[in-house]
Design a protein around this nucleic acid. Structure first.
Length: 315
DNA sequence: AGTGGCTCCTGGCGGC
DNA sequence: TGCCGCCAGGAGCCAC
């Protein structure tokens, strides 16, 4: 599932082909993809040149310039610059010049010179927004600091952890605390930090907080270096899979031996999310939170054998 | 305010 | 073989 490293991989790929292109038209095939209508999106996006691509947490941000040739190029409802935001959620794929003969993408940006940016998304959780750049601050107002930014210091993390009774796993998934961490990288970072996912966030000491921050950064950076994890259906805009899934330590390795100590990797449910850990490398300590109900039929065997979803789904 | 649980959505898979 | 129900999860929403 696209988390920070996957979205960053998409951003870097699109950076090589999108900037400078003009959005000629917008086609919305699935109204659920945006609260805005196709006409609204067209008015906000069409005629504008793509100026840049940024990322905030798991959100991809596309900066578009004012409509060229518009009176004065002045900002305003008439044709000013636009900020577009895309969230891939579970299965979203942004494909540049996608192969045809697929099911219709949820939306398409027709670009000039003639190319397409298509949004394919089997589970239909992904979303698109477009708004005046002045609205961006409010849009991201409740989102926590970027892990690689200066604001994500040990001091910040300690303050954020302080007093929290929620399990560490839930803390890491809370986008208001840290931006961009999802289920895969949360499990992997906790393993790297040797912290049990059910530890109460507030029970984490200063040395452990330092370890957790370093583990998060190392894990996310490794994900970026491997161009993402193609566990579910992630592919970059050229249809290429990432390779981080090949070096996962615990995520979806239930029943397999820990790569460090050989103990069997376990699975439990924390905050409704499948959670994978090594009971030896991530020992229980004081300040544990009670786990959620045990998963039915645990231990759940890994759901291996699924083909990459880069292949076209059935028509 | 913090926390947990439910919901959306679909394809894949296990069970019968 | 075919059908049914469960499962995955990011984030918004709601209840406590």
């Amino acid at each position: 599932m696209p988390e920070l490293p996957e979205v960053e991989t998409v951003r870097r790929r699109l950076l090589t082909c999108l900037p400078g292109l003009v959005v000629r038209d917008v086609v919305v095939n699935d109204p659920l993809v945006s609260a805005q209508s196709e006409a609204e999106l067209r008015a906000l996006l069409a005629g504008r040149r793509i100026a840049g691509l940024r990322r905030r947490g798991k959100y991809l941000i596309v900066d578009l310039g004012a409509v060229e040739g518009a009176p004065g190029g002045a900002p305003g409802p008439g044709g000013g610059p636009t900020t577009a935001v895309i969230h891939l959620r579970m299965t979203g794929q942004l494909l540049f010049r996608p192969a045809p003969a697929d099911r219709p993408p949820r939306f398409i940006w027709r670009l000039d010179p003639r190319t397409d940016l298509a949004f394919r998304d089997v589970r239909r959780f992904g979303r698109l927004w477009a708004f005046d750049p002045s609205a961006e601050h409010e849009f991201f107002a409740r989102m926590g600091p970027e892990p690689f930014g200066d604001a994500f210091s040990v001091a910040y993390l300690r303050r954020a952890l302080e007093g929290r009774r929620a399990p560490l796993k839930s803390f890491l998934l809370d986008q208001r605390r840290i931006a961009g961490v999802g289920n895969i990288y949360a499990d992997e970072a906790l393993f790297r930090a040797r912290l049990h996912p059910l530890r109460a966030a507030g029970s984490v000491g200063s040395r452990e907080a330092r370890r957790l921050r370093e583990a998060l950064l190392e894990t996310l950076q490794a994900g970026i270096d491997h161009e993402g994890s193609s566990v579910e259906s992630f592919v970059d805009p050229a249809g290429q899979r990432g390779s981080f899934q090949e070096i996962l330590s615990v995520y979806q390795r239930t029943g397999e031996p820990c790569r460090v100590c050989g103990e069997t990797v376990r699975r439990l449910e924390v905050g409704g999310r499948g959670t994978h850990y090594c009971p030896v490398c991530q020992p229980r300590r004081g300040g544990m939170v009670r786990g959620s109900r045990r998963l039915r039929g645990s231990p759940v065997p890994p759901r291996g054998g699924k083909p990459p979803d880069g292949a076209p789904p059935r028509g």
